[in-house]
Design a protein around this nucleic acid. Structure first.
Lengths: 206, 206, 206, 206
DNA sequence: TATGAATGAGAATTCATTCAT
DNA sequence: CATGAATGAATTCTCATTCAT
């Protein structure tokens, strides 16, 4: 039988992408086998090669697509205004949403840089750097405007990102906290961390 | 020739451990091959099996040894007193030192949980949990004593740990910051994050 | 779009034949892939199956067509007379021309017998044998007429054929020798080889 | 079971070489599979890789070894004297012996140049060129000494080599001609071909 | 007439592991 | 304690081929 009735290329491609992200997140890129991926998609291993030229390229494409999506989303979402506090709040909200919604993509993008060929790694790292720079920019502006107080902007950027990204590692939809609380809690933690005047403190603060 | 004069088992074993950690940190556990490990140690692949019953067991042993060392060190290092603020400061100092000194071990322990067999993973995770609980305990105490203010202790624990552990991912001996500054910067960030009475908030702080 | 206007089956078929001969000559039959052939023709792999039932049959047909063409050409070209010397001269001329003009076909026919299924090989070998027999007949006649002197007609046949066929392996249009010289040189070599009175010796030859 | 008692590496290596030459001669390099080679040798496919780093390298090594052996043999065998006629006779004898004794190696060396990577091909072709140059040298000397008469030394070299090498393609131990006759017949054909004073022409020959 | 999605078998190669020596 | 020869299973990837459209 040459092909299953009704299955189309673009549908197959999307299935592969989804299954691949899931499998890589579960097992790790090196531990995942194309056989298993194919089985999960419901095709023969050879079929994967109609959509990706090699296992390695598949990883790059998945990562690039994810990071481009992330950056594109932010561009579309970010608040117009320039208030650092407002922008930081928006960033935390965006990041947590993205990192819980696309948990597996984020996880893979963080874990599998190692598995990329050097040239590919550079491309991916460059995109990731652009994402980090969004936060770095906000912190810089906030420090300049004296609404944030951090000992070292670069380090604070890494610290905040690590803090926020870590969420994906333990958050479960079914857990104790809803997404709204999750965002609120992290907003407060981040605000405290960067030394922003705590919003719920009010005049009574020491 | 069966063996080089003077090379003894325990020395070989230590070489293997060191090389293994390095190789796993570089390539990832799945991507590392025993052939390459053997080559790096300067021994034949078969020889590794004198020291480890399997590739998988090797990983567990490396991780358990690392975590036990970490916990043991803390026990010996932690301040006697009970002041949460003092203990948090000590924890940050300890953690950053450990995570820069044994960067590769920490990295491996964070990345390769996935590669463990379920039963092994449980043992390793249990140890890691004990380590997390150290921080959780400090935060709880601090919140109870009203010297810390966090919206959710559990989440704050994860956040602080993620923040501190992230350091290992980018810190380099030769970088802009010395270890002392690194600790100071993170101490301040953590303190702000947990809402410890900000020392420089206003004129009255030291 | 299903097909380019004006491209007809027979044209496609001829393109495939030509491309196939070229590709097989370059890479060898086993090393050539139908994908590559299709790409060169500018068509999808599946399309090839409209013209050939299988990769293997394609080879047979190419070889049979070539050999039949060769034999047919000779039938049409050979001199009417019966003078062995004249016929040998004509054969050398014909062979060299054919083997330089259709170099790739000849090359393939010599190299790829191995790749044929036994039954197909037999058919092809039979045709090749008929071609060899043309030369064998000439030599026999010449020896009988005492104008050639060779120690063993069968061996001499192989020897002369090998000698002449070898030309295709190194001859290049752009080389030192033109086709005319090439033929002259080989004619003389062959004549000497079969012990025919060398034509340029001088008047004393028999 | 780790290994078959009594089997040694060097023995295995020699078995592989022999089987490989046989298999390549039968099927062609591309058509031969390592699975089949392994089966013939009586080992697992993976075992082949202890002896050759890849299928491709195996071919080069086999060819280089063969050609080096051939050249070395000739150095040791060639007649001390400088008489071209004598040396040509010795060359024919040597060549036919070598090409009937090591028929498969010769066949492979002639057929499988195509399967080599460009750099490897150059090395092999260089050695083959050195072999051709032996004959070219003899013919040159003979022509200079006026004991040979050929229209073009380069072409004559190719012609004679093709003629002699062709023997391997059809000669069988069990055939009509013994090796002695084979050599004699070819010696005479070659001598006639290069226009050496035909010994049996009649009394008047130079 | 031709496409393009898919198959399924098999290719080269690699790897953890074993064990006689 | 260590080697080196070998295994056997699995891996990525390729290929001839099929067939609904």
């Amino acid at each position: 039988m040459a092909r299953t009735a009704g299955s189309e290329g673009s549908r197959t491609e999307e299935s592969i992408r989804r299954a691949a992200i899931g499998l890589i997140a579960e097992r790790g890129f090196e531990a995942m086998t194309l056989r298993e991926l194919a089985r999960r998609v419901g095709v023969q291993p050879g079929t994967l090669y109609r959509y990706f030229p090699s296992k390695g390229r598949m990883l790059v494409e998945l990562l690039l697509e994810h990071l481009e999506f992330l950056l594109g989303q932010w561009e579309r979402t970010q608040p117009a205004g320039a208030d650092p506090l407002e922008r930081l709040r928006a960033f935390v909200d965006f990041h947590i949403r993205a990192h819980t919604l696309r948990r597996r993509e984020v996880f893979v993008a963080n874990m599998e840089l190692r598995s990329l060929a050097p040239a590919d790694r550079r491309r991916v790292v460059a995109l990731r750097r652009r994402y980090e720079d969004i936060l770095a920019g906000i912190l810089h502006a906030g420090v300049a405007a004296r609404v944030f107080r951090v000992p070292d902007v670069r380090v604070a950027t890494f610290a905040v990102l690590a803090m926020l990204t870590g969420v994906g590692a333990w958050y479960r939809e079914s857990g104790r906290l809803g997404k709204r609380e999750l965002i609120d809690v992290h907003t407060q933690l981040v605000m405290q961390c960067v030394g922003a005047a705590p919003p719920d403190h009010d005049g009574r603060s020491p």
